[in-house]
Amino acid sequence: MNEEQFKAIFELTGYRQQDFSVCLGCKICASVCTVNDLSPSVNPQDILLSLFLGHEVNSDHALVHYCTNCYRCTNACPWGIRIPEVIRALRESLALESTFERAFKGSLKIWGRVYEPYIFMKTGVFLLKEGYLKYMPKWTEYMSFHLPHGVRRLSSQGGPSDSKGRL
């Protein structure tokens, strides 16, 4: 079992193992996931299912590396599951940092804000190397539109469906 991972996830997101059970398996998250703009075929639901089944998620899972924190999955998910936060917790427990996170953090450190040219400079090599150039326009869009989402509150109040006071 992956006690460590669950501790990290609970601390960061407030989700417990059973909270992932509400996932319907509809794979809507996969249909909208930004990572699929780049290297197709990640399914965020996979991660939830692994966690729910008590399996370890290991560091070579593509999403753990590439999740952009765009929250597209969360916004489209019928249950609003905060997958990027789960992934951030996983990264923490696996002591990983994605290329983008490094770039964003660097940018914040130097400029005090997200400065796109700097981010492109830092991530450009990675994008080029992986053949992602054609997605550049989309990336600009995501960075300008979705980043504020990405750094919004790390809610830790209760599970994913407590809005109606139900368990």
Partner: peptide, 10 residues
């Protein structure tokens, strides 16, 4: 254009 994830692929 529609994307969906089935059979292990997008």
């Amino acid at each position: 254009t529609v994307r969906y994830f089935a059979g292990g692929d997008l």
